[in-house]
Amino acid sequence: MQEDRNHSIEIAKIKEALQADIITGNSQTGQYVTGIYASDLMSDVLAYGKSGSILITGLNSVQAAISAYMAEFKGIVFIRSKIPDQDIRKFAEEKGLFILTTDTDMYETCVKIASIEGEVSVSTAAAALTKRAENVTTYSFSIDGQDFASAGMVSTQIKTILKSIGYNPLIIRRVAISTYEAEMNVVMHAKRAKVTLKASDQEIYIIIADEGKGIADIELAMQEGYSTATEEQRAMGFGAGMGLPNIRRNSDKMNIESKVNEGTTIETMFFVK
């Protein structure tokens, strides 16, 4: 990856600077790391470490390897001549982590790596905190058209997620109703759809993008009671023509775009007070 290379350090260079021994990952020395994280506290590594980084630690325990793997690190430098045991090696080999050991202490190791030419991003809790406002969790789901048996599954899943985040029940109710209506529309009129949920402390944002026949006249479709559902669908209780107006009523912001014979995208937004 060319782009990666401009902001990273080659593993071989780290090895050279530290005069470190390679324990696992001989073949990886040509790869690059994009960040450095020095800590012995594994909970911090997991919380603040950026993927692609290297972990500098004196904690010679398999927990260090598991943490590095969970945080999607490329590898570990064990300081002060700590030689990882068989368990750590096996785990690292399996998960593709490289391991170096050096005889220097943590300060010296940091100093030596810092002196290597190259720009690396360093993850800090402070950076993580400023990013908090834009903390967003994203999920995606898919809906199949004409699958009446599983209709409602996506809105139930979304509801479960929102409940476990702990939003106000009233906002969850509104999201559930409007998502359910949108889901029913997809099942009745479209081939398939992709649903994306983005939840943050500011707002809940849902995009339902379907592939289908689209809506020719959006204004008409937004009128209460307007429906293009078939007789059979009505007999089953679907398509009372309340779909779109109901979505609009229950959301704080709604945007709908449609192209005939291509599909419809509905975006809804709910503000968290």
Partner: peptide, 20 residues
């Protein structure tokens, strides 16, 4: 609920960690 014991921001952070 258990989730409501912390603010939404922390809760979302935990959600991200949970998914990870």
């Amino acid at each position: 609920t258990r989730a409501q014991a912390v603010d939404i921001g922390t809760s979302i952070k935990r959600m991200i960690q949970k998914e990870r």
